[in-house]
């Protein structure tokens, strides 16, 4: 069992910082390059959502929490931004709250595809917490 918690400003250059930290934290599970890449992508999506939508470009604090337990990893990305009014709508493929920014609307779809589970808790005016899990199966030897 291991835990981590990271707080950083909602700046777009911290998207890379956050996904790199998440990848480093789960190295203990001996993931494949592909699994690492999937987690990095999912974290990048969640943090980008917090920067663009949660804080809408203004400055706020984003929290990344990680838990390792046996061969599973759990990450939460938390903001205290504007929140999501309609979570179901936000999770629809190709739906973007900011189409004018050339956002693809595929962020949640990618998180769902690359992680085992994803849970979104949000309240307007309070913020959003996205929690994702992934089990790293041991590779068969030989």
């Amino acid at each position: 069992m291991n835990k981590m918690r990271l707080e950083f400003l909602s700046r777009s250059d911290n998207e890379r910082f956050a996904r790199t930290v998440a990848a480093a934290f789960m190295l203990e599970l001996d993931p494949t390059v592909e699994q690492l890449s999937e987690v990095k992508t999912a974290i990048s999506e969640a943090v980008t959502n917090a920067v663009i939508h949660g804080y809408d470009g203004s400055e706020g604090i984003i929290v990344l929490e990680g838990t390792l337990d046996k061969n599973a990893v759990k990450f939460s990305v938390i903001d205290r931004g504007i929140g999501i009014r309609d979570i179901e709508k936000a999770r629809e493929p190709l739906y973007s709250g900011k189409p004018e920014m050339e956002r693809s609307g595929m962020g949640f779809t990618i998180m769902e595809a690359f992680m085992d589970s994803i849970e979104v808790e949000s309240a307007p005016g309070k913020g959003t917490r996205v929690t994702m899990t992934k089990t790293v199966e041991a590779e068969d030897e030989g």
């Binding site: 990048s44 999506e45 693809s104 595929m106 962020g107």
Partner: peptide, 13 residues
């Protein structure tokens, strides 16, 4: 080496 959905938006645009 790495791309997230921002790359999708860029390419579709």
């Amino acid at each position: 080496g790495f791309m997230d959905s921002s790359g999708l938006g860029l390419v579709m645009g």
